[in-house]
Simulated assay, not measured.
Amino acid sequence: MSRTLHLPDGPLTLSGTGSEWAAPGERFTGRVAYAAAHVVADPAAENVPGAPPVLDWDATLAFRRHLWAHGFGVAEAMDTAQRGMGLDYPAARELIRRSAREAAMAGGTVVAGVATDQLPPGPATLDEIRKAYGEQLADVQEAGAGPVLMCSRHLAAAARDARDYLDIYGQLLDDSGRPVILHWLGPAFDPLLAGYWGAGDQGRAADTVAELIAAHPGKVDGIKLSLLDEDFEIALRRRLPAGVRLYTGDDFNYPVLIRGDDHGHSEALLGVFAAIAPPASAALRALDTGDLAEYDRILAPTVTLSRHLFETPTWYYKTGIVFLAWLAGHQDHFTMVGGVQSGRSPRHLATLLRLADAAGLLPDADLAAHRARAWLTTAGVVQP
């Protein structure tokens, strides 16, 4: 079978370099690294916009085993899993339960999103928001996963000032039986979260976060920062108390942030790691041994891909994540809950295919070529 494809910007012959990556089973020693995993839709179900999501559980859990095999922890039911964008809370709760059980059997680690999305869209009182957060925190702890306190659209709309955030998050920290990961997701990922932590200015918002962490010693494992601002992340990281981690969620600048400097480094909780797990695993193992040149060499082409994957409108990066999972053989179709497979154009995805080949993300070039040829044909790009 020919590996040569005709893309909108010219021909591409798939290289097959994605078969070079090994899958060691041990975790990394120098960094804590979570990959935020996507979900696999049931292609035979009515996964159309507005319909309740129906998942292919076997394929969804198999992908988590793939991540654990490469040494990553799994960040479950986060925005990469289409939380707030097709995955409702009943499905998210079941996902967390199944993933935590699977982690226990596989010897993997899992943290999971705690939010307020069981509430209906629209206004909610602060008391309703507090109770919704509390219900999900209890669900995650009962499942045996580590809690990640996600940003709440309801809280962003209802909070009057920073004090409301401090009160609600403070109660959650008091109620949690284990240290939590805070999550600061910027408006590039969700415009409804603008002004989170009670301030439009990031510096003032950071003051609120620092006050919250200082007021609850031992209750915060770390904070995941997804603002796509390298300098701000470094500045916040240096403000954190000893023992509190900064988990980078910066899908543009992750290599330098994870690599670190003389003053410290960021750990990782990244959506892009779901797409680039094999080379990212090899890079992190090179970092474990102090081989910085090899670390930089492996990750360099993934950054070009990630910047394309997360380009504006950033929240549709999930479409590219699933497209790559299909081409790499992790699922049998390119269908998403909520019909979100339509979130990126054929030209965008064709460029993503080219970048994926350059980054070594396609372990079976013949399979990828077969699937890409069929998809390009349906997209109206005639193949040789």
Rank of each mutant, 00 (worst) to 15 (best):
S2L: 08
H6D: 15
G10Y: 07
P11L: 04
G16I: 00
G16M: 01
A33S: 00
A44G: 03
V48I: 00
P49I: 05
A51E: 06
P53E: 01
W57P: 07
R65E: 11
R65K: 11
A69H: 13
F72G: 04
G73K: 08
G73V: 11
M78H: 09
A81L: 14
R83G: 12
R83A: 13
L87S: 03
P90D: 09
A92Q: 07
I96P: 08
I96R: 11
R97I: 05
A100Q: 08
E102H: 09
A106C: 12
A106S: 13
A106L: 12
P121Q: 05
G122A: 11
G122M: 12
A124Q: 03
T125A: 06
D127I: 12
I129W: 05
I129N: 03
G134Q: 04
D139W: 13
A143Y: 02
A143K: 02
A143L: 01
A143H: 03
G144Q: 02
G144M: 02
M150W: 15
C151G: 15
A158P: 03
A162Q: 03
R163L: 13
D164F: 08
G170E: 11
Q171I: 14
L173I: 05
P179T: 10
I181W: 09
H183I: 07
D190A: 14
A194H: 10
A194G: 10
A194I: 07
W197A: 11
G198N: 02
Q202F: 07
G203C: 01
T208E: 05
I213C: 01
K219E: 07
D221F: 11
R237N: 07
A242Y: 00
R245A: 13
F252P: 05
R259M: 00
G264N: 00
A268L: 00
A283Q: 06
R285M: 04
D288K: 06
G290C: 07
D296W: 06
P301G: 03
R307W: 09
H308V: 10
P313L: 13
P313D: 13
Y316R: 13
Y316N: 14
T319H: 04
W326M: 06
A328Y: 05
G329C: 09
Q331A: 15
H333E: 08
V337M: 07
V337W: 02
Q341M: 05
S342D: 13
L355S: 03
A356E: 05
A358R: 10
L362E: 02
D364W: 09
A368L: 04
L376M: 14
T378D: 15
G380L: 13
